[in-house]
């Protein structure tokens, strides 16, 4: 029976290259990815190998129904096996003799991939900004209104840490977007 192990690791949205390098380093140590996740990656023990991993970010419409089958069939035909997906990010490993050494072979498709990710980050970031304002508004209402509702009196202490957490998430999303935007500019 093959030995499996889960490694806990988190990568930010703009860190696909680091993630690929980390997966390739695990393969050289004899740990081969069998199931990716947002935080946990399941690996199977085996012989050390020089594997090539690549990540692709796709829209939800590509990752559902017939479009997903067509998408994965092209990768399989090109010599890239899909190991699973985490969110909208698909994980591929090249088989020996894959038709191309990369999954994106021109600047236009690399830029399109970054733009897809930026659009998703923009939507999530927008929601998070709105959420931060909501929490901030409730927090200031709770602190300035004497008495307030029973819910405010009981749960009011939750707003400051929630506000800080929410604001930090906005900053983090902004940081990732900025790094991706720089990567987009670097493609020309």
């Amino acid at each position: 029976m093959n030995r499996t192990k889960t490694f806990w690791r988190f990568f930010l949205a703009h860190q696909d290259a680091q993630q690929e390098a980390w997966l390739e380093a695990q393969a050289r140590r004899g740990w081969h990815l069998v199931k990716p996740g947002i935080f946990g990656f399941r690996f199977e023990a085996g012989e050390p190998r020089e594997d090539r991993y690549r990540l692709d970010f796709q829209t939800t419409s590509t990752l559902t129904g017939q479009a997903r089958l067509d998408y994965l069939a092209l990768f399989r035909d090109g010599g890239w096996d899909c190991l699973g997906q985490a969110g909208n990010r698909c994980y591929f490993r090249a088989r020996p003799g894959a038709l191309s050494p990369e999954i994106h072979t021109d600047p236009e498709s690399r830029k399109a991939r970054i733009r897809r990710e930026l659009r998703v980050l923009g939507a999530v970031g927008g929601l998070q900004v709105w959420n931060t304002f909501q929490v901030g508004a409730r927090m200031s209402r709770a602190s300035w209104q004497e008495g307030g509702s029973a819910a405010h009196r009981t749960l009011g202490w939750l707003f400051p840490p929630l506000f800080v957490l929410s604001a930090l998430t906005v900053l983090l999303l902004g940081w990732c977007s900025w790094k991706l935007w720089r990567a987009l500019r670097a493609e020309g």
Binding site: E108, S109, R113
Partner: peptide, 11 residues
């Protein structure tokens, strides 16, 4: 010219 599957799918 070797078309990667990601490039081909997008194109």
């Amino acid at each position: 010219v070797k078309l990667g599957p990601g490039t081909l799918y997008g194109a």
